[in-house]
Nucleic acid binder design. Structure first.
Lengths: 137, 137
DNA sequence: ATTTGTGCAAATCGTTTGCATCTGA
DNA sequence: TCAGATGCAAACGATTTGCACAAAT
């Protein structure tokens, strides 16, 4: 990992109130360098194994949740059995290809929700998820 | 269970191409009599235990999936770890109360999606899920 | 009689936890 | 130094599977 990139990611992580440890830097590099992506813990763990000394799966989970908490990632649930984490935290929506079990971003201005209904008394909107499930035809 | 209701449910199940067994009738009764509801396998299993002789959890899962397959139910995924099944299969959306881990229906005409984006070549839309996550404030 | 469904227990998958050890500020 | 982070293995919750037995047509 280049020095410039490393420091970029380190400050990213510090801004989240987390220590830039070796593991977080490695995962941050995989997540925040280059294109936006949708990863599962499993996938990220695999990738980390390929490029760095060692990161445990538990640490991958910890880190994904900490990053999400800090607003660096966004969790996306499409199946009842696992989670994706999206490096794009801007408001946008998703196609979900069931067969391939993969997500595709939908540009925010490609689709609009007209008039969110008023949430029940005492609650407020935290996040809006729109998932368009696709099948092969 | 009354006879009239029983036969109603039996035909419901037959229309789905399934045999109206004791277990399916019991579950169908819990699901399709009265108000629309959002159930988990666990909850339905509990309820079934209270009103009938015996239904195994595996059968509850089988049945929920068969009913879903047949268009009698709709699966809703809000967390990465479990599924809800909605007895309302009309197009509509959901509030999700994270704290209580429960769903609330949003009437279809309370919110509109303007212009679904065109799905990628070779795919077509199977289902559109809109979930508005709510937090207590 | 044949096909379909069911129950049970074991297996699986994704995820979380407890705790001893290590590491960054 | 010492709060915070990590690794490991065990625990966990939801779901699925394999297979012998039972029930529906």
């Amino acid at each position: 990992m280049e020095l410039a990139v490393k420091q970029d990611i380190a400050s990213h992580i510090r801004q989240a109130g987390l220590r830039p440890t070796r593991q977080r830097l490695a995962l941050g590099d995989l997540l925040f360098t280059g294109q936006h992506r949708h990863v599962t813990a499993e996938i990220l763990h695999q990738e980390a194994r390929d490029v760095t000394e060692h990161v445990s799966l538990a640490t991958v989970y910890n880190t994904l949740h900490q990053f999400t908490e800090a607003g660096l990632l966004r969790e996306v649930n499409v199946t009842g059995t696992k989670s994706f984490f999206d490096t794009n935290t801007r408001e946008h929506h998703h196609f979900y290809l069931e067969k391939e079990d993969m997500l595709i971003d939908i540009d925010k201005d490609k689709m609009e929700l007209s008039g969110l209904p008023t949430p029940p008394e005492g609650t407020s909107v935290e996040q809006v998820d729109v998932i368009i499930r696709l099948k092969k035809d």
